[in-house]
Amino acid sequence: MAPDVLLLPGWQNSDPAHWQSRWEALHGDRRVEQHDWMRPLRGDWSAQLEEAVLAANGPVVLVAHSLGCILVAAWAAHSRNTHRVQFALLVAPGDLERDDLRQMIPGWAPIVRTPLPFPSCLVAADNDVYCAADRSRQLAADWGARLVDAGPRGHLNSDSGLGDWPEGRALLPPILKD
Rank of each mutant, 00 (worst) to 15 (best):
R153F: 03
L62Y: 13
A141D: 10
I111P: 03
S120E: 01
S120P: 00
V5C: 10
P59Y: 00
G28R: 09
R135K: 12
W45M: 08
D15K: 00
S158L: 10
A125M: 02
V53H: 04
A109F: 03
V5K: 00
D100C: 07
R39N: 15
W75R: 10
A170C: 02
D44W: 00
R146S: 11
D44Y: 04
D178G: 14
R169H: 14
G154Y: 07
D134R: 15
S46E: 14
L116P: 02
G58S: 11
Q20K: 08
R98V: 04
R22P: 04
Q20C: 08
S136Y: 11
A88E: 09
D128M: 06
L7S: 04
A141Q: 14
E33C: 10
G163I: 01
A170P: 01
D126M: 03
H78Y: 01
P16D: 12
R42I: 09
A52N: 10
A55W: 05
G151D: 04
G161R: 12
A124R: 00
F87C: 08
A92V: 04
R42M: 12
M104N: 03
Q138A: 15
R153S: 09
W11T: 07
N127M: 08
A73G: 02
Q12H: 15
S79Y: 11
Q138P: 01
F118L: 07
P174S: 14
L116K: 03
C69L: 12
P119S: 15
A109Q: 05
A170E: 02
L89W: 02
S21V: 07
R98E: 15
D126T: 13
G94C: 14
M104H: 11
S136L: 06
S158R: 15
L156T: 09
S136I: 07
A150R: 06
L139F: 14
A25P: 07
L139I: 03
V53K: 07
F118Q: 05
R31E: 10
D95F: 04
L49M: 13
G94D: 00
A88K: 05
L171P: 12
H27C: 13
L96Q: 05
M104F: 10
D36E: 07
R30D: 00
W165D: 01
Q86D: 14
A150W: 00
A140I: 05
A47I: 02
